[in-house]
Every structure is written in structure tokens, then in C-alpha cells.
């Protein structure tokens, strides 16, 4: 690494005079533009915004925005990332790599949440919410107690347990010489036996060559299902585009399965909270029990501002602002009736 940094200094000196004055391309970035995009955080605390949030608030925000994939306590749903636990597993046969067991720096947690989470609605959390969620993640990893509040002031006082668990790539010293040199070409070993077979596991996806021709044709057009003839095709197409906002959590069409959100086939006309096998919020099943049926009016209102329409819903989506988008998506959902 040291050698590498020296080289850097040398190459800088060489490279700069070549185009010392540059080509004069581009324009100056305005301070507010840099501020809008430069939100990254470093282990030394560079980039941390002012703010604060405690474990209790974090638990609430996490339950609403994160638990649908990561579980109420960071234990994860399906194959989504596990965020808590896994202590002392790194040298075991099945390591569990979590924030508490593996991640070296807390700054990475804050940075990642503020840039990429929640999945499908990135950059929607306030700085205080990100502090609160981060505090909660420390709590579920047994690093702080339930009274803890995290802020830009005490952030640097919280090392993660595995900070010392990493070292810079040493393959040049430990592997390259071992794996270089003369090789044997003739009579290199005795009898050869097969010691493992992929077919025993049988986890390979079906080959397309095995698929009948019709299925291949279908594959060309999925996942867009056939629209029902009476609906305005332009609206259906517009709705399909709007549906991209929903795709992170919801599937629709042939073979649609529950993901982080329930599958949506035939949603119009159905009682709320009634898809088998989906873990709804109490608010949603309660609304269904009280007689909420999804139609253009109710679903349209829900999609405008989900958490205002149905307080306590797990759906972390902020809502569709444009009435035209709501009209289009309702037509699209209608078009994909079973």
C-alpha cells in the first residue's frame, strides 16, 4: 500500500503537465449542486450531517420502512440481508455477516441507508430518521442500550466490533508466487476419481433448450400480460410504466408471487388484506374485516398517500402525486385481471 501511494504521487506529477490547462470543457459545479449530490460519509466522520435519533424512534421507523424485508429485529425475511446477530460466526462453517458481526464501520451503515434505502424509495428518509434507524441497528446488535441516542456529536464514539477484521489484499505476497512456475504436462497423477457432481444437487435452472417452442415465445413477452380489449391501450401502457415504482415489492401477471408486498392479480374488487400467505399489517387486515374493498375509488385514495389513508400499513411507498398516474395504474391493474 505504501509503495502504491508513492507511485501515485509520482504519476500525478507526470500526468498533470500534459494537460496543465485542460481543454476548458465542462462548467464550474455550483456549491448547491455539490451539496445535493455529495452526501457520502466516511469512517472518519467526514460528510456526517447534523441530526440525531434514538433507539425508540428508530424502532418505529424501522418497523414502517425496513422490517418488511429485514424483519422486525433485523433477522431478515426470505433472502433479504440479515442485519443483526451472527457474533462469533466468521470462522465457522456458515458465517453470518451482519452489521454487528462483520461490518467494520458505522459510517458505512449511515451512508448506505441514506443513499439506497428503503429499497424502492431511496433518498426519502430525513437525516434524523437515518440516525434513528442506525441507533436501532446498533441496539439490535447489542452494541448500545435502549436509551441510546445517536447524533453527529457522538457518532465517532461507536466502533463496530469487527473493525479490526479486515486487511488489504495480500494476494501478491501470499498467492502469486505459489501459483506461478513450471507445470506438469505428462503422467501428472495416478487414477482420477469423480468426488462431486452438480447433478446430485439438482439446483440448475431448466435449460431453455428443454422448453417447448410456445414457452420460448411466451418468455419473449413476459412479464407484460395481455391487456383486456376494452381498456385504453395508451393508459394501460402508461400504467405499466408507473407500475415500475411498485415492482420492487409487488408482482403481477401470470405466476406472480408474494414478495415484500402481496401479489396483485385481481386486486380490484377484492377485500383488503386477504391474499393467502402474506403477512399483512394489523391495520390492513383490520380494514378488510371492516369491509374495505379495493376499487378505483378506494385504491386510488390509498395510492395517493398510503400511510395517511391507512395508518399502520406496512407499505412504505410515499404515494403517487399525479392524478394521471393513479388513473393509469388503475387501468393497468384492471388490464391484468386473471
Amino acid at each position: 500500500m505504501l509503495k502504491f501511494l508513492k507511485l501515485t504521487a509520482v504519476s500525478l506529477c507526470i500526468s498533470n503537465p500534459a494537460m496543465a490547462d485542460g481543454l476548458g470543457l465542462g462548467r464550474a459545479a455550483l456549491p448547491e449542486e455539490v451539496a445535493a449530490w455529495d452526501t457520502d460519509i466516511r469512517p472518519d466522520g467526514a460528510g456526517l450531517p447534523e441530526g440525531r435519533g434514538n433507539v425508540e424512534t428508530g424502532e418505529e421507523v424501522f418497523a414502517e420502512a425496513c422490517a418488511i424485508c429485514h424483519g422486525d429485529f433485523g433477522e431478515a425475511v426470505d433472502r433479504w440481508p440479515v442485519l443483526a446477530g451472527g457474533h462469533d460466526t466468521l470462522s465457522s462453517e456458515r458465517p453470518v455477516k451482519t452489521i454487528g458481526s462483520y461490518w467494520p464501520y458505522l459510517s458505512t451503515v449511515f451512508d448506505y441507508i441514506q443513499r439506497a434505502m428503503p429499497f424502492g424509495n431511496a433518498r426519502s428518509l430525513s437525516n434524523d430518521d437515518v440516525y434513528a434507524i442506525t441507533a436501532y441497528l446498533l441496539y439490535v446488535n447489542d452494541i448500545v442500550d435502549e436509551e441510546f441516542e445517536l447524533s453527529h456529536e457522538n457518532f465517532m464514539e461507536i466502533p463496530l466490533p469487527n473493525e479490526g477484521g479486515f486487511f488489504f489484499d495480500d494476494r501478491p505476497e501470499t498467492e502469486l508466487s505459489v501459483f506461478s512456475g513450471e507445470v506438469c504436462m505428462q503422467d501428472c497423477k495416478g487414477a482420477v476419481e469423480i468426488t462431486g457432481r452438480a447433478l446430485v444437487l439438482d439446483v440448475t435452472p431448466e435449460s431453455d433448450e428443454e422448453a417447448p417452442a410456445e414457452q420460448q415465445d411466451a418468455a419473449q413477452t413476459t412479464p407484460a400480460p395481455e391487456p383486456v380489449a376494452t381498456l385504453d391501450p395508451a393508459l394501460v401502457a402508461a400504467g405499466a410504466k408507473v407500475f415500475k415504482k411498485c415492482k420492487a415489492c409487488h408482482q403481477i401477471g401470470e405466476g406472480a408471487k408474494n414478495r415484500s408486498g402481496p401479489q396483485l392479480n385481481g386486486i380490484l374488487g377484492r377485500t383488503a388484506g386477504t391474499i393467502d400467505g402474506f403477512r399483512y399489517s394489523k391495520a390492513m387486515t383490520g380494514a378488510g374485516a371492516d369491509g374495505l374493498i379495493w376499487n378505483d375509488e378506494t385504491l386510488g385514495a390509498f395510492l395517493t398517500k398510503p400511510r395517511a389513508y391507512l395508518k399502520g400499513t406496512k407499505m412504505s411507498f410515499a404515494g403517487l402525486k399525479k392524478p394521471a398516474d393513479i388513473e393509469a395504474i388503475l387501468v393497468y391493474l384492471q388490464s391484468v385481471m386473471e
Binding site: 457520502d40 466516511r42 469512517p43 472518519d44 467526514a46 462483520y102 461490518w103 467494520p104 459510517s107 451512508d111
Partner: peptide, 14 residues
């Protein structure tokens, strides 16, 4: 962004 040290972000740690 040009800096004086690596950022250790999610894709290069976890």
C-alpha cells in the same frame, strides 16, 4: 469525488 482516503462503503466492506 477526489479524497485522501478510501470511503469503506457498503460494496467494499460488507
Amino acid at each position: 469525488e477526489v479524497g485522501d482516503q478510501p470511503w469503506h462503503h457498503r460494496e467494499e466492506t460488507s
